[in-house]
Design a protein around this nucleic acid. Structure first.
Lengths: 214, 214
DNA sequence: CGTGCGTGTTACTAGCGGTAACCTGAGTCT
DNA sequence: AGACTCAGGTTACCGCTAGTAACACGCACG
């Protein structure tokens, strides 16, 4: 009986937790990453201490929230990466999937990339290097694994794959961020340009006449 | 006489401003981006309102601070990019310059990448897309200009150059950030791996035997 | 009946960014 | 001399935030 009761309670707690996360989601979608705990609690129809009982602190809530979106986006990316097509087509599809996602819900994207960051909660630890958005890290690792599994890069494949994974993800992210702000071209054009870059057009390009060469 | 007096005052104000910036620099170097205005004022031996008279608000101070470091780093990068050598060598030198900089002073680097970002100062504006670190944007634009000036990419060169500029900078940044956290290899190896990526080794790589191909 | 226990609230602390109001001393005009 | 201006600086405050302690209701169990 004790067990059944505990499961019952846990079930209720989980439901509550999901409700709270959805409320938080709505607020973040509306207010961006500056969404305050007060606002989230109000949106959920409760008060702050409950949030803290469920998630510990703001970081906990944000981590839980980020996990959901990150998982969803990663699933899409994996699907694009696994489609049956030529390598270049798949790379383009993956880029396009990512860009479409950040285009569709920029607030969520922004939240994922800059998760609060602040908090004067005395953590004076040197956590430099780990400060990057978890989403970027996870995407980088994921891509690294795919590269390592499928590409033959000779000796040092594993290390090369990890560098490339993070590097390519960073390229995608920075280009996407800039593109989202200035909209200098269509999504398809951006995808093609980035794929061209990855396909070695930089190395293959000729020097401009009269210049010292790049 | 009026002019001389005003220049005298302005000179004094500028000196003061530089002193304040140096104090702020010390604090940021010590406390990271969470450095508070109070702490900075204390380090400078004065009180908050003076800071606000000089820089307007926290964003202003941070912008002024970031400008110094950004200018310095950009100058180094430009030098590496302009060195008399083969294209690949120059690319490697530039990557190495950046990585050496972030390796040498990670706190400054972190500050430049995530300039406060917070602040409850009711700016609920949808500034998504412009949220990226100014340093990244400036580096991207700079690189884009160099690419456009020196490379012959056929029609659409300008747009391609901008995409590549931001993309390459993002690649460098993300890989550097990851590398700084995990230190999976030497700086030289990282530089080589990234240059290899830019040189089209991704496209040239063969599929792994037995796999579906990437 | 009372005793826990989960669920929720109110009311608070400490610290932040930012500002209004005041003070102070040096130079200038009459 | 004495009043007047004005830069430079301080105290004391506002409104906000994240986070917490302490108290109150409802409901099962012995």
């Amino acid at each position: 009986m004790d067990t059944t009761q505990r499961t019952e309670q846990q079930r209720s707690a989980d439901r509550r937790r999901r409700e709270l996360l959805e409320a938080a989601d709505r607020v973040v979608l509306r207010d961006g990453p500056q969404a305050s705990m007060n606002a989230i609690a109000a949106e959920a129809g409760i008060t702050k201490p409950i949030l803290y009982r469920h998630f510990g602190d703001k970081g906990g809530l944000y981590a839980a929230l980020a996990m959901r979106h990150t998982d969803a986006l990663l699933a899409s990316l994996r699907a694009a990466l696994d489609a049956p097509a030529e390598r270049r087509e798949r790379v383009e599809a993956t880029l396009d999937t990512y860009l479409a996602a950040i285009e569709a819900r920029p607030q969520v994207y922004r939240f994922l990339m800059h998760p609060s960051e602040g908090g004067q909660g005395g953590d004076h630890g040197f956590d430099v290097g780990k400060h990057s958005a978890p989403l970027l890290r996870r995407m980088g690792e994921e891509l690294a694994q795919v590269i390592e599994e499928r590409l033959d890069l000779g000796p040092g494949t594993q290390q090369l794959a990890r560098v490339w994974g993070h590097g390519i993800v960073g390229m995608m992210h920075a280009a996407g961020d800039w593109w989202l702000g200035e909209r200098p071209c269509s999504r398809a054009e951006l995808v093609r340009s980035l794929a061209d870059l990855l396909w070695g057009r930089l190395a293959a390009a000729g020097d401009k006449v009269g210049g010292p060469g790049f």
